[in-house]
Amino acid sequence: MTNGYRASAGIMLAPAVTLIGVFILLPMLLTVWLSFNDWSTQTPFAEARFVGLANFQDIFGSTSVGRDFKGALVNTAIYTALSVAIILPLSVLFGLLVHQRDVGGGTLLRTVLFSTYMVPMIAVALVWSKLYSPSEGPFNQMLGLVGVSPQPWLSSPRSALISIVLLNVWQQVGYFTVLAIAGLTQIPGSLYEAATLDGANRTEQFRFITLPLLRRTLLFSAVIAIINAVQVFEPVALITQGGPVGSTNVLTYHIRRVGIERAQGGLGSAMAVMLMLSLIVVVCALFAFMNRKDDE
């Protein structure tokens, strides 16, 4: 009976497991294998030459290869941290605003917020590159009206990455607001009624009811926001080309430059493996943190 059950479960799982194996696990394993090889992306895999850890030594070394990779890794980390740190609180704030039943126009606001997520990145990039224009951009013109001097935005290594983060926040916050609203609707209204009877004010209700019960939603939002941020590519490719002085050179854009433009498949794969490992470490740390909180 047990063997029959196992056999039928295996048969039913086989198609999904095979697809995952072929289209997800196999490319991942191939990337890991290529990271230990010297290989041009324009040649067959058979021409790859095993070089051990040389690619990893290069990407963490002191030559331009290592400097550029480490710079891109740091830029990606800053971009991700800033994006998540801004998007999550904003999404909860907007979620709370939209979720209020006694305020009119909530559906319209929800639609407006979500609509930014549906705009193609090419259109967003074109419009925002003009909004940020140092000489004729509306942002600087608006700042001028309130007496603030023009900002360099994308033209300065100090502000270019932050400008790209703001663009990302504008586009993504609507999606995460919808997630936050979904989480808020799961919280029973009776909890708030009981808290009100016990004399808890709005701030206390938010701190002791809303936030703890939104934790699972926020964990999911954080993981998705991190993955989205790590994969940032289009605004960099379309607007800044990684500049100025490499200040917006994020890992996905850099891997594309190394692996495809320069055809250095081994080096590009080593960088992709490091990106994957970093992402796994961050997401696991996040889950471990949330589990500890749950235990407490």
């Binding site: 140092p134 000489s135 004729e136 360099p152 033209s155 490719a237 080309q241 500049g243 100025p244």
Partner: peptide, 18 residues
């Protein structure tokens, strides 16, 4: 002023505008 001379993917941008 380098802030006035940035180029974009189409080899246009502020450097040309200025």
């Amino acid at each position: 002023d380098p802030a006035m001379a940035t180029a974009d993917a189409n080899t246009t941008g502020p450097f040309l505008d200025n």
